[in-house]
Structure formats: structure tokens, C-alpha cells
Amino acid sequence: MRLLFEMDLKNYDKNGKVFKRPSARAIIIKNKKIYMVHSILYDYYKFPGGGIEKDESNIDALIRETAEEAGLTVIKDSIKEYGCVHRIQKSDHADCDIFIQDNYYYFCEVEDNKINQNLDDYEDYEKFTLEFVDPIVAIKANRNKNHGPKDLVELEREAKVLEHLIKEGYFE
């Protein structure tokens, strides 16, 4: 999968213990808008998706996480690779110094019917809500609003992926 960009904060001990957490994220575009998960509490947008579990394929994680976070059923035959964002920064985990995350983005289509979300505790607390949004609205929200304790690197990653999609003509 092609590398879209790298986000390396260089704020960590290069000899420290590493924590890796790859993720799979869904890009679902229709009529010049995109499905995104909106944190109502902290007012940011993210692509549906999340962490890839041990012994889980990227595609299986994409399907599972999109259903859990967004209540959408991915049509497996529609999945196409888009690109990867490689992220490295100081870890906020007590037993690790470096956080490394490869974020794999996939185009996909979803079934028309919605299913119930199955949110983690923090996702429920933040009131994760699926929204069909103009990409510029999501970019501006992620960059210009107060998001409380949220990791701004993660939010900038999502804004930059949206910018890539716009630049490459996916919303025309």
C-alpha cells in the first residue's frame, strides 16, 4: 500500500521501548460528502475504523471497526486500498516510550441499512455519532476547535487524509 505521508514528532527516546498499534480506516464517499464519526463531546471528526487486533487481517478489522463505531456494514467486495499514514511519537502508555501506528485507509461501500453501534466506553462517553459531512467542514473542525484532551496529531492526520482525497479529485 502506498505511503500517503509520515507524521514523526521526533519527541521520543529512539532507544526506548516501542508500542505498535496498526489500524484500518474506512473511506466512504457519496455525492461529494463523506461518512465520518463525529465526537460530539470533543467536536472532532475521524474516519470509521480502529485498531487491528492480534491475528486479525486489515480487512477484517476494517469491517469490524466500521460496524462497531459507525453502525455500517461494509460490502467486502467493494474494498480497495487507498494509502497508509505512518505515525511515530512519544507514547502515553506507562510501559512504553515510542508509539508507532500504521493507519491503513480503504475505500469501501456500505449496505443501505444501519446496524446498532457497539461502542467502547470512551467512544460512548464522547458520543460517537455517524455523520455524512462535507470534507471541508471536518477539516476545519479538526484544526480550529478546542478538542479538550484529545491527541491533536490524530486529528491532523485525519484532516491531511481528507486534503489528499480532495487534491486527488475524489469529491468532484
Rank of each mutant, 00 (worst) to 15 (best):
R25G: 02
Y12M: 05
A94E: 15
L162Y: 10
A67F: 03
I100H: 07
L41H: 11
F171D: 08
E126L: 06
E154Q: 12
Q101W: 05
N116R: 03
K140A: 05
I136E: 14
I63V: 13
V153R: 08
L165W: 13
E56R: 13
S91F: 02
I27T: 06
Q101M: 14
L9D: 08
I28Q: 07
Y105Q: 04
V85H: 06
M36S: 10
S23I: 00
N31E: 15
E56I: 11
I75T: 00
L41F: 04
E109P: 00
G169Y: 08
L165Y: 11
D92E: 14
N116L: 12
K10H: 11
N146T: 09
I34A: 06
Y35V: 07
E69G: 04
H164G: 03
V137Q: 10
T129P: 03
K160F: 06
R157H: 02
L62G: 00
N103D: 14
Y104S: 12
D43R: 09
I29H: 02
K54Y: 15
N58L: 13
Y45K: 03
N58C: 02
K32T: 06
K150D: 01
A70K: 02
N113M: 12
G50W: 10
Y44F: 15
G148S: 06
K54H: 11
K90H: 06
H147F: 07
G71N: 02
I79F: 04
I63E: 10
K32P: 01
E158C: 04
R87K: 14
E6Y: 04
K30L: 03
L152H: 07
Y105I: 07
D121C: 01
I100V: 15
E154H: 12
K54I: 11
K46C: 12
L119M: 05
N11W: 04
V74P: 05
D8F: 00
P135D: 06
V137G: 00
E123K: 12
Y170G: 08
A159G: 01
K14W: 01
Q117F: 03
G16M: 13
M36Q: 12
I75Y: 11
I136F: 11
E123F: 04
F107W: 07
Y170R: 07
V85L: 00
Q89N: 09
R21T: 09
D13S: 12
D112Q: 11
K20P: 00
E53Q: 15
F5K: 09
N113L: 09
L62S: 03
E123D: 08
S57L: 06
D124V: 03
L155C: 05
